[in-house]
Computed example of a mutant assay.
Amino acid sequence: MSRWVTTILFLVGSAILTHWIPFSSFFRNVDTMVHELGHAVVTLLLSGKVLYIQLYANHSGVTYSYIERGWKTIPLGLSGYMTASLFALFLFRMYAQSKLIVGYAAMTLLALVSLIFFVNNGFGVMWLIGFIVVNGIAMFVKIPFIHKYYYLLVAFICLEESVMGPITLGVMSITNPGQAGDAAGLARSTWIPAIVWSLLFLVVALWCAKHAIYAFIGKARSSRSSPSRWESQA
């Protein structure tokens, strides 16, 4: 079976399974948080000014900022979806390297930065506080099952959302291109149609997803093939 087919099957199966898990909707804003932080960080790197970020209960978000017109709007427009895709890959790489604590720390740090410096709406603030608390409990809990599978739940949801976002954007680019979010903004800046930008986001998301899935599979195979150790005491 080709790697691309395996990736698609994993993504579809993960999407079906995670939607059956109670409260899984709560974690879908992790992808939104990372997406909006990507915009905020690039704005600052390009000497722009971030006013604030808002996160919403429907898993959408928006970053309000000032930046010069011209070429700077292109990296700004690219940053959201690509940051989210790369972050999902990062979570799986940390899992494959048995560095869950690094992944946990990254998620918590990003939530703290968002809460302290950027997010100002009621839902966004309450969600961030809740996520930081839940993440902290799972990070330091002494039960390995919870520590591992909570992490994988968040990682797979981030991966699903990082792929579904560009797909939804692509549909919007066809049906209502002027309202296609980042793709519409890039189209206005470059005169390249929104659907082209949506496809670029999707290609990057699928590339990251393929490498993330195979990091997960490789970890599972190495765990099964590791020799067991038997200890006895007289």
Score class of each variant (00 low, 15 high):
L76Y: 10
Y52D: 09
A212F: 04
A183G: 03
L44D: 05
A105T: 14
V133A: 12
I21A: 10
R188Y: 06
M1P: 09
S14N: 11
N29V: 08
S60L: 12
G181R: 11
L100N: 03
G38T: 01
P144L: 09
R69Q: 12
I21V: 15
A96F: 08
I192F: 05
F123Q: 07
L112H: 00
A96T: 00
A96M: 02
M1D: 11
G170L: 15
L9D: 08
L206Y: 04
H35E: 05
L199Y: 05
C158T: 08
S24P: 02
Y150H: 13
L200K: 03
L152Y: 02
I137K: 00
F92T: 00
T63M: 01
S14Y: 09
I192G: 02
K142G: 09
C208V: 07
S85V: 02
G38V: 01
F117C: 12
I16G: 08
L91P: 07
S14G: 15
G130S: 13
V102D: 08
L11I: 04
A187I: 02
P22I: 12
A15G: 12
L109E: 04
F156Y: 13
M1F: 12
S222F: 09
K148Y: 10
S226P: 00
G165P: 09
I67T: 07
S114C: 06
L78M: 07
L115P: 03
M164C: 13
F216C: 03
L153A: 10
G185Q: 05
G218Q: 04
L152E: 03
M139S: 10
V154T: 01
A96D: 01
E36D: 11
L128N: 05
P22A: 12
P22D: 12
P193L: 05
A212S: 03
G80K: 08
L89M: 06
L100E: 00
G130E: 07
S98Q: 13
Q179T: 12
F90W: 10
L37N: 01
L44W: 10
L86T: 04
Y81L: 12
W191P: 03
N135R: 06
P22C: 11
F145Q: 15
L110K: 06
F118I: 07
C158P: 04
R221V: 14
F27M: 05
S226W: 04
A40V: 01
T175Y: 06
K148A: 08
Q179C: 11
I8L: 15
Q97C: 06
E160V: 13
V34F: 05
V50G: 06
S162R: 11
S60D: 12
S223M: 15
L45D: 04
I21C: 06
F156A: 14
K99P: 04
I146P: 09
Y150M: 11
S232R: 15
G80N: 04
P166S: 13
H35L: 07
I74G: 02
S189G: 08
G218M: 05
H39A: 02
S24T: 10
E68Y: 09
G124W: 06
I213N: 00
N176M: 06
T43D: 03
V41T: 10
I16Q: 08
M172N: 14
S24I: 03
G178M: 00
L44A: 11
K99E: 13
M164H: 14
S25R: 14
T6G: 02
I143S: 10
G170N: 15
P75Y: 03
I67M: 07
P144G: 11
H59T: 15
L46T: 01
F90G: 05
G38F: 00
